[in-house]
Nucleic acid binder design. Structure first.
Lengths: 117, 117
DNA sequence: CAGAATCCAAGTGGATACTG
DNA sequence: CAGTATCCACTTGGATTCTG
C-alpha cells in the first residue's frame, strides 16, 4: 500500500506515509533493518511471533514501496537477505521524532536496550 | 488503542505511537484540528466521506488517549467542539517530519493549500 | 531455509435508520 | 446538531500444511 500503489489518493503527506508503514509489523521491520541486514528467518525470530505468510507479505509491500531491498543468494540452503534502501533509511529518520514521542507519552516495556525509533 | 489502553505491550516508541494514530482517519483529524477547533459535523464535512459512527469512534479513542479535547456546550441545538490538547499538539509536531517525507516520496494530490503535516 | 497455498478468525470500517 | 444502534462487508492477520 503506497507510493506508486495509490497515486493521487492522499490528502496530505502523513496519510500517504501512513499507507507505507501501515502494516502491523512494518515499523518493527524498519527498526530491525535500521541496525543491519537480516535474513528471513532471523528477522522473523527477532520480531517474535509473526507468521511466515504475514512477514513475507509485509516485506513484499515494503519492497514494492522501495523501502527494503531483497537480495537473493543462489546457495544451498537458500539464503535471502533484507536491508534498508536509501529511501527506507530516510523514512526511518522521519520516523525518529514519532518514536521519541511514543517513548515519552506511551508506556513502553521492552527490556533496556538501544533506544530504537 | 494506546497510551493507557495497552500498557507495556510495545517494543519501541514507534509502534506505541502507531497505536495512537492507527485509525484510518486519525491523522486527518489531527491535521484538521491543528489548524483550529472543529464542531462534529463540520469536521465530518472537512474530512469528506466519514460516517458519523466511525468519526465518533475515532474521536472517542483520540480523546481517551489524551490527544483531543471534547467540549460540550449546553445549547439548543447541541454543540460540541473538538480541539487538540497539548499532547495532541506535540504529537502533531512529531508527525511533521513524516508528513514531509510523505510529500517528497509519495504522490499527493490535494489542491494547492497550506502544506499540512 | 525461504517461502507459497489454503482456510479461517477477528478487527475495522461502512450504510442506514433512529433519538435526545 | 450530534450522536447511538444495528447489521453487514472487507481487509488484515494468523494457523497449518506443503514445496523447491
Amino acid at each position: 500500500m503506497a507510493t506508486v500503489r495509490r497515486p493521487g489518493s492522499y490528502h496530505c503527506g502523513i496519510d500517504a506515509a501512513m499507507d507505507v508503514i501501515g502494516g502491523k509489523w512494518k515499523v518493527l521491520v524498519l527498526w530491525a533493518l535500521d541496525e543491519r541486514p537480516y535474513r528471513f528467518g532471523e528477522l522473523r525470530r527477532a520480531l517474535g511471533g509473526v507468521t511466515e505468510k504475514v512477514l513475507a507479505a509485509q516485506l513484499r509491500e515494503l519492497e514494492e514501496d522501495g523501502i527494503v531491498h531483497r537480495e537473493v543468494y543462489d546457495e544451498v540452503p537458500p539464503r535471502v537477505e533484507y536491508s534498508l534502501t536509501a529511501r527506507g533509511a530516510s523514512l526511518n529518520e522521519a520516523l525518529a521524532p514519532l518514536g521519541a514521542w511514543g517513548r515519552q507519552n506511551v508506556a513502553v516495556v521492552s527490556p533496556p536496550q538501544v533506544p530504537g525509533p
